[in-house]
Amino acid sequence: MSMLTVQDLNVWFGSNRDRVDAVIGASFEIPRGESFGLVGESGSGKSTILRAITGLAPDWSGAITVDGQQIGKARPKTFFKTVQMVFQDPYASLHPRHSVDQVLGETLHLHGFKDIDSRVVKLLDDVGLGQKFRFRYPHQLSGGQRQRVAIARALAPEPALLLLDEPTSALDVSVQAEILNLLADLRADRGLTYLMVSHDLSVVGHMCDRLAVMKDGEIVEVLDVAALRAMEAAHPYSKQLLEASV
């Protein structure tokens, strides 16, 4: 069964003269347990698709189905238990005056968990941080450690689908390797489904099973990673992107 189906999705900002169509007629489907990548240059609308799914982009049309449930304008609480997002910039996505404990504790509380204390401990262990980071503030953490906290926060409600918006582009290559390994392990352990946005084709090639190439708000091609590795892109733009990144 498919975890996420997006059909004929349009997303726009502004109205009348200032209207910008960020995503035009995007359709794709992700089966449960698959890792799907979205690549393209900045402004191609790949992050906007993620934002439309989570409800951060208010103006959209088309059909989004998560785990068999069609998404309307208002999202039920169960939606946020199923779908979580990790943002690009670990420096901007954590509250500067909340400790790691508060960040995770609040998320758990909002999702109605009772055993918050033991769950915070478990989450920190799962993302490889451990106890000693529990009462630190974001400024006391490195970029990689912050991204681990952001991943722990996303995992707190025990979601099935994780939306990853360039999770490693702000990190060093050595730290990127650690985070990518962590994400791969978590997916294997928990059977998560990933929708990952990246501008780095080699990262997507490493993490994903299939990917969609976007240009100017449209999906120009969906191909699997084997084809990507064999440099068998059909669309001229995907070819160009492949050549630029090898």
Binding site: V173, Q176, A177, L180, A184, V203, G205, H206, S245, V246
Partner: peptide, 20 residues
């Protein structure tokens, strides 16, 4: 070497990336 090996590569897929 560690930095080079920690990069994912399209032409040489691996199960896990090497951590420095």
């Amino acid at each position: 070497r560690g930095l080079l090996n920690s990069l994912p590569r399209l032409d040489a897929p691996r199960k896990r990336l090497e951590v420095l």
